[in-house]
Design a protein around this nucleic acid. Sequence first.
DNA 1: CCCAACTCCTGGGCGC
DNA 2: TGCGCCCAGGAGTTGG
Length: 268
Amino acid sequence: MPELPEVETVRRQLAPRLTGRSILEAGSHSSPKFVEARAATGARIQSVERRGKFLIMPTNDGREIVVHLGMTGQLRFRTGPPDDSDTYLRAWWYLDGDETLEYADVRRFGRIKVVDAGNYASMPTLAQLGPEPFDPTFTANDFWLRLRASRRAIKTQLLSQRPIAGVGNIYADEALWLAGINPKVSRIGKARAAALLDAIRSVLQKGLDNSGTTLRDYRTVDGGTGDNQNSLNAYGRGGLSCHRCDELLVRAELDARTTTWCPVCQKR
DNA sequence: CCCAACTCCTGGGCGC
DNA sequence: TGCGCCCAGGAGTTGG
């Protein structure tokens, strides 16, 4: 599942190849999740940005192409026109220079929008997205205040994207493990909020350094896999021993998400 | 406003 | 070998 490190890895690969390119033609699957891709025909891409898990490509006509990879979305380049025979091709943009940017997505959990710049009414999560984790002006106190706005379980809050942007199921479990915080606690104090922010930054940076976590579907633009799956301490390790205290990690469902934690290091 | 439940999707893994 | 079942889950939607 692409989270901040995966989306940022993709962004870094896309940016040099898309900046300044014109979209000569576009096509898509008929689902409302993807049809707007076609509206980008005629636009020129000015840059490739990222907010949380959303890729945002401003165009020269005052609009933005917004892409969310969902669970299984992949962006890649193809020389020449799109490959119509690919069952999972959901959208494509044929660019100047006889090259196509293809969006493939097996499970169709992703979505593509073309909006007037900054108008995110059709994407409420983006409209209400929390600060970027690596924004230097985002402080531990800000984070604590944002967390205080809700009494839901701390992990649920992280997944909501509102206290902080870009954290999904994998990095939430990793960060809570690193900070020694139980995913079900509903309120944490300033000191623990500061520790959690440090932990989030740490696990996201490690994910970035490893070009992302490939469990099954995630691929970089050049088709490569990430390496971070080999560095996980919590996610997917239910029943295995904790790398810090050797206790067996517990696995349970929280808000319909598999959650793994150490009952000793992450006491309630 | 907040929150919980539901929905979308389909390949891969597993048991038999 | 093949069938059926269940799991993975980000974010939008809906209803209380």
